[in-house]
Design a protein around this nucleic acid. Sequence first.
DNA 1: GATTCACTTCATTTTGAATTGAAGAATCGC
DNA 2: GCGATTCTTCAATTCAAAATGAAGTGAATC
Lengths: 190, 190
Amino acid sequence: MPQASTAKVSTAPQGNGKANGSSDHPPSAAASPDALADIQKGMAGIFADLADLVGNPSSLGSIYGLLFATPEPLSMDEIVERLDISTGTASQGLRRLVELDAVVPNKADGERVTRYAAKLELRPFVSMFLNQQLMPRLGKSSDRLADLERALEGLSPSDQETLRFRIGRAAKWHRRAGMFLPLIQKFLRG
Amino acid sequence: MPQASTAKVSTAPQGNGKANGSSDHPPSAAASPDALADIQKGMAGIFADLADLVGNPSSLGSIYGLLFATPEPLSMDEIVERLDISTGTASQGLRRLVELDAVVPNKADGERVTRYAAKLELRPFVSMFLNQQLMPRLGKSSDRLADLERALEGLSPSDQETLRFRIGRAAKWHRRAGMFLPLIQKFLRG
DNA sequence: GATTCACTTCATTTTGAATTGAAGAATCGC
DNA sequence: GCGATTCTTCAATTCAAAATGAAGTGAATC
């Protein structure tokens, strides 16, 4: 049972959220105590689950989710505060997200802090998963399968026959997968 | 770094492997000390990695891999011995594999033990992954997204506009994914 | 119906990834 | 330069999933 992630994702609804610099809409028709914070929390949770589904630390997802649901860019400190994570996690997570091109850092002119915004395209996320997680692993298994096929030599003829067939079968699936992934990428692009 | 799994998968190449009941080919042209055991070990490793790639305990993969590379069905004890895992792990792993229809149990007539053989079709494996791991999670996220969309009410008009757009975008990707998975299944079938 | 053997269950332990947080580095304004 | 502020690093900690193994269950044999 893969646990719905993130018992946290900020429990604290303290004062008003919305710590962003510029904008300052008159709170106008604000309904719930802080509806925006709730939505941000929700998004953080959703993306946290998604992240660990594809084998990434869920904090990565939380951070991205928060930014995705935040109109204005956030500083690292704001992220730390809202998600209630450590500075270390935030720092590393942001670095990774920037590498993945899922988040854009922005050190504005006279500012001291760097602020981060989510790129709204999710494609990089997906294709990063395909390229960095699936492809390399598939490649490695294929190589290993090839090694095994070579090792068949030293087998009794009957075992040799059986295993050659079976290894061939496994290899066939690897080939299929290897053909599909690029195909999926193309589909995502279209 | 997801560690290439399974430092074990049986280190011990003790005496002769091949503990299977019936067959007993004259070892004929046996080259390496025990080539069959090596291949089995290799397969166990490959499938262990694959298993944890898709979020299953790697022991599941080891067991399946071993059976996949074993001409004759194996008893639980033989599996425990060859993979050097505990009876508990083997018992639970086999149960799961049988549920997944990846392995067939066979309590032969006058025998006391149940012997297990790998089903060679890998399709069940793949489609199980799609159906039991991906689909449900995607469904859950979709629901959660819908909830968030409803929560937009209590937002300032400008935030509302921004977030409606963004949530819509996330939802679009979910829909795409939801369309693709069945499509992949069909491809696997063909 | 007692004994043996095959298997299951589950409380405990192990393990390894994720997280923390404080110390150090870097950067900026003065 | 100096101090203040932001960010990075990494050894130590936490935590949950996986593995263990011994006690329990059940079935087959005599």
